[in-house]
């Protein structure tokens, strides 16, 4: 369960296997945005606040910086959704894989050699995976 996807499945291609117990055992990351109870409510509040339902139709209101205030409100709510999304992506989404790839798996053009090159092996993309899921 704690395997790093970089090693065992680096070259693996899905081939219609279906082991649903493993599917559901593997699906949960260590930490994900949906675990935060406030994510969806806050998202909905900001999205609803961006829509000018609170004003009657056909109203312009004050214009500031070339745009009506209600447009600035929509922009501010949108910026709020951006911030919420970025915070969720950067702080509330974690998993057991390392954030930075190990040196030995970097692209050749980036300086370090791949594991295949170090061992002299041909990169065999069709090689059978050690963890064959077929029943």
């Amino acid at each position: 369960m704690k395997s790093c996807p970089g090693d065992e499945s680096h070259h693996r291609e899905y081939n219609n296997e279906r082991d649903m117990d493993r599917f559901w055992a593997e699906i949960r990351p260590e930490r994900e945005p949906m675990q935060q109870w406030w994510f969806i409510p806050l998202l909905l509040v900001l999205a609803v606040a961006s829509v000018p339902w609170y004003l009657p139709g056909g109203v312009t209101g004050r214009i500031v910086g070339g745009l009506p205030i209600w447009v600035w409100t929509a922009i501010a709510c949108s910026a709020g959704i951006s911030t919420l999304t970025a915070v969720l992506a950067l702080r509330f989404w974690r998993d057991d894989e390392p954030d930075h790839e190990p040196e030995n798996q970097r692209d050749p053009e980036r300086g370090a050699k791949t594991q295949d090159e170090k061992t002299g092996a041909e990169p065999d993309n069709e090689a059978p995976d050690k963890t064959d899921l077929r029943p």
Partner: peptide, 27 residues
């Protein structure tokens, strides 16, 4: 502007699980 940002917010719902599955099963 709002709906283009919401696209990324929607990824926050399902992408963490889909990404993990994709890496493990090679989608």
């Amino acid at each position: 502007v709002t709906f283009m940002i919401l696209v990324i917010s929607c990824y926050m719902i399902y992408a963490p699980r889909l990404y993990r599955l994709a890496k493990r099963f090679g989608y």
